[in-house]
Amino acid sequence: MSKNDDFYVGYIDHVAPKTKGFLKRFVAITLFLIVAVAVIFSLTQSTFKNSTFELTSTTQITGIYHENPYPMLRVPINHNSYKNIVLLGFGKSSVNPYLQKVMNEVVTLDKKEITVEGNLIYYNGKTLLQITSQEKVSLTHSLKNISSNIPISKLGQKTLDGEIIDPKCYFGVMKPGKGKIHRSCAVRCISGGIPPVFATKDQYNNSQYYLITDQNGMPINKDILPYIGKPSIIKGYVEEQEDWSIIKINTNDINIVSSTSDIYQ
């Protein structure tokens, strides 16, 4: 056949049969390619962890407010057993602006009972709560016979390997909430006042989490930004406060490593 018989013009309805057949075959092959690529890219994703962020529902919780050094709510679970819920603000921000209203009502909010309503975030035994409005925080007086003193166990110096994460994303808001893909978000969160946490694994391969403070036990945010989301080794003084551990560090002691941390496995 001469090539003259097979010339395609887009605005002319007629298409030569051979061209039409060719196009049908091309579309079929392309659709097959689409299926193959969708299968490859979807099936090769790493497994997401079963962390939860209750974005569309809120929970009301009453407990004793404390800052050791980050805002938390100590909630009685059973007799003499407590859970410390990390309080967070909306988006990538600290909870502090949302506590301002109740802080104005008392000399100090520390060790006072408050009731808060917000979105729960939880994973691996840790619970956090996002508060989105000052109106969702109020002073209450319903809890009886609760000790406001938190027992502290001093565990001494430790060296840990893992990654500095922002707990809001890691424990539920984002998946994955760690590693390079998430690094810039974690930087933004911690820069905004969300407490930094060190995620690591113990000798039995169980996940361990440490709230990070400076050497004086004070909040640390801006100074730690260059180290977030990278496999690293840190050393510091460790304390255990009920269900949370705290590691007091000097940021100069953080050692970024090139090897992959166990937390990725």
Binding site: F90, G91, K92, S93, H182, S184, C185, R188, S191, G192
Partner: peptide, 9 residues
């Protein structure tokens, strides 16, 4: 939006 919005900058 996911990684950079709702932050301090």
């Amino acid at each position: 939006f996911q990684f950079h919005a709702l932050g301090d900058v």
